[in-house]
Write a protein that binds this DNA or RNA. Structure first.
Lengths: 121, 121
DNA sequence: CTCCTTGGTATCCTTTTGCATACTATACCA
DNA sequence: TGGTATAGTATGCAAAAGGATACCAAGGAG
């Protein structure tokens, strides 16, 4: 396996946390992936799409992403209310991170399975 | 700016969390970067290198990384004790993630500065 | 006149993280 | 005989994150 990337980050100056802090939150990755994959979504669409999430948590996670300019919230003044969420251009710059992490996550799954096998031999 | 990476993850099958959960922890990124940059390190070297970390937290974070096979712990039975930590081969597969996140984090810093400027005009 | 819908809030509670402080074992050194 | 060094553990507490439940506003449908 070839390791092309040279990592030379001065640990004390590391900005990994900045990206991390935006992605951390029980529902944020899945929300982002929905918006990236399916484009603009209404609040209720997201809620229906994400099993197990409560209204409060959905609101909460969306607000936090909005504050970081990762997603955009548009309110239509109609009754019943219509609120649409979408990824911002800036937010879509997170895609490489999500992609890299997802790929790694799939390998990690295999790794854990192998370890489990070994432990049961 | 070119966007080469095509992200097509089924949100409900996303494995982003797997990578995320390993990196999350107040001191994990910096510990990993130290081990990657400087190679094998003693407990006390890490403690001295990372300002503000307590002994308990360092132990705790190292244990969690060890459980995931990201780092290796070697104890030399001498007095006073000598314990060395190093990145495993598997652990070093996290480098691309750390690298991507760090790069994004640096851009994020600029983004926040611009936003701050705008708000004060 | 009442119910339904959407996109929320408000309140309270539990779980998870993180932190501070104190304590330990062992051998060496003066 | 007492102090030092290393790499921890034990205990208790504080803060943050996450979750369950109830409530709300406004207009349209019946």
């Amino acid at each position: 396996m070839e390791q092309e990337i040279k990592l030379d980050i001065e640990p004390l100056l590391c900005r990994v946390e900045d990206a991390l802090s935006i992605l951390v939150g029980k529902w944020k990755p899945i929300i982002l992936l929905y918006l990236i994959k399916n484009g603009t979504q209404r609040f209720s669409e997201l809620k229906r799409s994400i099993p197990g999430i409560t209204q409060k948590m959905l609101t909460n996670q969306l607000r936090e992403l909005e504050e970081e300019d990762i997603i955009q919230r548009v309110v239509y003044p109609v009754v019943p209310p219509r609120v649409e969420y979408s990824i911002t251009e800036y937010g879509s710059s997170l895609q490489p991170i999500l992609d890299t992490m997802h790929q790694w996550g799939e390998k990690h799954l295999l790794h854990k399975r192998q370890k489990f096998k070994q432990n049961n031999e």
